[in-house]
Each structure stands twice: as structure tokens, then as C-alpha cells.
Amino acid sequence: MTPETANAQQAKQREFMSLLPLTLELAGLPKSQPGAHFTDGQMEVRVSVIRNAYKLARQLVIDISKPAESAG
């Protein structure tokens, strides 16, 4: 692995972690009850929901970072 590849991976990980609170809010997943565990299928569904919520959270940040269009 080249240093550039490692740096890019670390940057993506930092980006994911910085968006994680927003991602989890968008996902709206309930927490498990104390002592209860999710099945493998439930965890796969939750991962899919989180993945989709991350894509939306990332796009939201990109959209709000764009300069405002001037009214013309």
C-alpha cells in the first residue's frame, strides 16, 4: 500500500466518523434493548440503512458547501 493510498483511506475514515452523528440521526434506527441482541439478518439490514444514510449525509454536506446561486 502506498502512502498516498493509506492517506486517502484515513481521510475517508475521518470523513465517515465526522458524519457519523448525522448519519445515525438520518438512519433513525432504534437501539437494542439491554440484554437483547440483533440477529445476523437484522444487523445486515441496519448496516444497509446506515450505508444509505451516510450517502445522504455526505451529499447534504456537499450541497450546503456549494456557493449560493445569485438571484438573477
Rank of each mutant, 00 (worst) to 15 (best):
V45D: 07
I50C: 00
K31W: 06
N52C: 11
S48D: 07
G41T: 14
V49K: 09
H37S: 15
A27E: 04
G41D: 12
G35I: 01
Q33T: 15
R51D: 12
Y54F: 13
V45S: 09
A27V: 01
R51A: 14
K55P: 15
A57E: 00
L26E: 05
R46E: 02
N52A: 05
F38H: 11
K55Y: 11
P30K: 04
P34N: 07
A27F: 08
Q42F: 04
R51M: 13
T39E: 03
V47D: 09
G28S: 10
A53K: 08
A57P: 00
L29F: 12
A27C: 09
E44H: 05
S48G: 10
G35P: 02
E44Q: 07
S48W: 05
M43E: 04
V45N: 08
L56A: 14
S32W: 11
G41N: 07
A53D: 02
A27I: 01
H37V: 13
M43K: 09
Y54M: 13
L56Y: 15
F38A: 14
D40W: 05
F38V: 11
P34F: 14
E25V: 07
R46M: 05
N52Y: 12
P30T: 11
R51E: 14
F38E: 14
E44T: 08
T39M: 04
M43I: 13
L56Q: 15
G28K: 13
L29I: 12
Q33S: 15
Y54C: 02
S32K: 08
E44W: 09
K31D: 09
L56K: 15
L26A: 13
M43D: 03
G41C: 06
A57D: 00
Y54N: 08
L29G: 04
S32N: 13
R46W: 02
E25A: 15
F38I: 08
V47Y: 11
F38T: 12
A27G: 10
Q33Y: 15
A53Q: 04
F38N: 07
P34M: 06
Q33E: 15
Q42I: 05
L26W: 03
G41F: 05
G28Y: 07
M43F: 10
P30E: 02
A57I: 00
A36L: 03
V45F: 13
K55A: 12
